[in-house]
Each structure stands twice: as structure tokens, then as C-alpha cells.
Design a protein around this nucleic acid. Structure first.
Lengths: 193, 193
DNA sequence: TTCATTTATTGAACTTGTTCAATGTTTTTG
DNA sequence: CAAAAACATTGAACAAGTTCAATAAATGAA
């Protein structure tokens, strides 16, 4: 179960076998069935998770009841509400499994323990946070500067494998448009080929 | 010049006087006059900067020639294109001084040196990246779920002091709307009072 | 297999925001 | 101070995207 996590860590930092074991022992496996929630709005997010299997979505529900998907997480991605987790404030987000999933979770206390006793873990999370920040920055620029058509085409090109595992409803909620409008975009694009 | 930086660092990590000196010596002061550029599109961003004085904007110019402002940086904020800086790829961004500014910059080489020799610096940047990521995540949610009116009102409430130092053009470019439309929003709001 | 639920498509009316062009106001700079 | 440049406002025509309602298609559970 933890081989994926270990491989992932090794790709980012140099760490001894002992340290690796000690760190990975802080994680517990959690199975989440399709449609079950790992976090709901109003709760304080008490975990950071590594997706070992499956697919989840992190989303927000606005005043009008519409969903916006902040991101998807598949195998090898980390998942948490970093805002709620670090500041210990009620989350604005839901995390739900889109497919039956397995997430390796670490508690805040154990993460702090790792930061204290395994200095390389600072580097690991510094790098991971940097990566997710870069991804979000790119998305922000795209959202500000591109039309929905273009964002949809970019999405397919950028995440072809993820695309196949999602419904149009979910893709629309990620792109920030209604699913009806996505449907019209799809028609328009299909007509062009 | 570096007292602000030192205060800032002390607020986030515990560090000895020696380490503080050694780290801060890696920074050079750079004065940027109003309207001058610190980074332009296509360049590889070779620095990370701490704003000691002034106000800058980080923006992107899209295919249609419109500007989108990714963020503003005032005193005590860090400024860089983290994407270009970490991946050493050409930047999509411009950084320009809105007011005469002073930025304390550190090169990539010196930052790597700090990571190697001053382990607490890992923690500092892990925390800073986390903070900027949280801010961007909140903004992403707002952009996906709120109307321009609401985003404008939120902006004024959240950054009242920054608001005063910006033109409507700049605020519009940050909110992701045309400045003409912002003008109409302002009229509507003024009428309501 | 069947019935219920979820997902996808489509059209029409509507809202939000853009674009362009004209005009007025403020700020900068020689 | 005067002229130029940058900034702000307004209106009209337009484009992008939403909402609602109806229908069809796909999926899932008993």
C-alpha cells in the first residue's frame, strides 16, 4: 500500500531507509467508497492525504448551491484543505471520492512531529507546496485570460487520462461554467472537426 | 534596509543571530522606479524578492493584449514568478513597480546555498509558500463563485489600505473584468448608498 | 431486467460582462 | 503653468455564459 508513497518521496528528496520507514509509519490507510465524503464544509481538516488509489474531488458549494471544483486528486497526488489544515479554521470545502479510493492520511500532530524530527520532511513539503502553487497559479492565469472553449480544450490536452474518468458535470464545475454551456461548447467543437 | 526582512523572518521561524546575518547577507537591495520592470515575459526569473518599500504588480498579458494582475506586492510581501524561478522556464509574467520601490533580492544559487546550509530556511519558505498558496486558493474559490460586484466589495474590505494606492484600471485587471465594467459597478454601488 | 437516478443535450429568454467610441477628469512632466 | 498623457465615465451594440424547462440517453441498484 505504501510503495507508491515511498516511490513518490524518493523522487523528491534524498532520505535514508530508516527515515523513510519512520515517516511512512505516521500514515494510516483510509478507504473511501465512491460518493463518500472525506471532508465536509464547516469541519476542521485534520489530515493531509496521499492518494494511493482512486480519484477524488475537492469542491466548494456557493450561495446559489452551485459546485465549483478546486481540484481533482488521482494516484500520487496529495489531498487536503491546506487552508483549514494549517490555520485550523472551518473548511469551506468538501472532499468526495469519485471512485472507490484509498488515501494514506497523516494527522497534523504527526506531521508536526515529522517536521521536528525528520528535517528532510520540511524540504519534501516545501517542494510539494511549491508544485501545487505553481499549478494553481497557471490555472489562475488561464481562468483570467481564456474563454471557456479554450479552457476546455486545454483541459483535455493537459489531462487526457483524467478526462476519461470524469463526467461533463464535473469538468464543467472545474472549468467554472454551467454543464449546459459545456454541452454547447462540445457541440460547437464537434461540428468543427 | 534589512530590518524589515529580519523582523519578518523572526515572526515565522526561530533562528540564531548568526544564521540570520548569514542568510540576510545573501540579499541585495534593488531600487525600482515607478513604471520600471523587474521581470518581463520570456525572461527566466532569476530572483526571489522581499519588498522593503513600495508597491509592485505581477501581471500577464493575454493574446488580446489585455492585462491580468496575478497579485500585488507591498512592504513585507515576497515577489517572484515561482513557476519560472523554480523550473527555470521562460516567464509568462511581467513585474512592474507601481510606486518607487525597494526590493531585497536573492539569487537562485544563494537560495539553494541557504537551503543546504541553513536548514531553518527550508521551514521559512515552506511556510511562506503555504501562505501564498492559501491566499491564491481563496481567490480561486471567490473567482469561481462570486460576481464581479461582490469581488470588488470583498477586495475593498480585505485590502482597504492597498485599495487606496491603486487605480481602477489596476483593480479591474486584478478582478478579471474590464475597467469600463468596473466603472459601471462603482456607479451602481454608489447609487445604493 | 426493470425502474429509478444520474447524466447529457437542446432551445429560448435572460444576465453578466465586453468592446468600441466619445467625452470629461486628473495627474505628470517639461 | 500649459500641454500631454494617463485615468475614469458613459452609452450603445454585442458576445459570453446562465437559467429554466423539457427530453433523451446512460448508469446503477434491486
Amino acid at each position: 500500500m505504501k510503495t507508491l508513497l515511498k516511490e513518490h518521496i524518493s523522487k523528491h528528496i534524498l532520505i535514508s531507509d530508516n527515515e523513510m520507514e519512520e515517516f511512512c509509519n505516521l500514515f494510516h490507510s483510509k478507504k473511501i467508497n465512491k460518493k463518500d465524503l472525506l471532508l465536509r464544509e464547516g469541519e476542521i481538516c485534520k489530515f493531509e492525504g496521499f492518494v494511493a488509489k482512486g480519484l477524488l474531488r475537492v469542491y466548494h458549494i456557493d450561495q446559489n448551491g452551485y459546485e465549483q471544483i478546486l481540484y481533482f486528486a488521482i494516484e500520487n497526488w496529495w489531498i487536503t484543505d491546506i487552508d483549514s489544515f494549517t490555520n485550523e479554521t472551518p473548511s469551506q470545502l468538501f472532499i468526495e471520492a469519485i471512485e472507490d479510493s484509498e488515501v494514506l492520511v497523516i494527522s497534523k500532530k504527526d506531521k508536526e512531529f515529522a517536521y521536528k524530527n525528520l528535517p528532510k520532511i520540511e524540504k519534501l513539503f516545501r517542494i510539494m507546496t511549491q508544485k501545487t502553487h505553481v499549478a494553481l497559479q497557471r490555472r489562475m492565469i488561464d481562468n483570467l485570460s481564456k474563454t471557456a472553449d479554450q479552457r476546455y480544450l486545454d483541459f483535455i490536452e493537459k489531462y487526457p487520462q483524467l478526462f476519461q474518468r470524469l463526467t461533463n458535470l464535473q469538468i464543467a464545475a472545474y472549468l467554472g461554467i454551467s454543464h449546459e454551456f459545456l454541452s454547447k461548447i462540445r457541440k460547437k467543437i464537434a461540428g468543427k472537426k
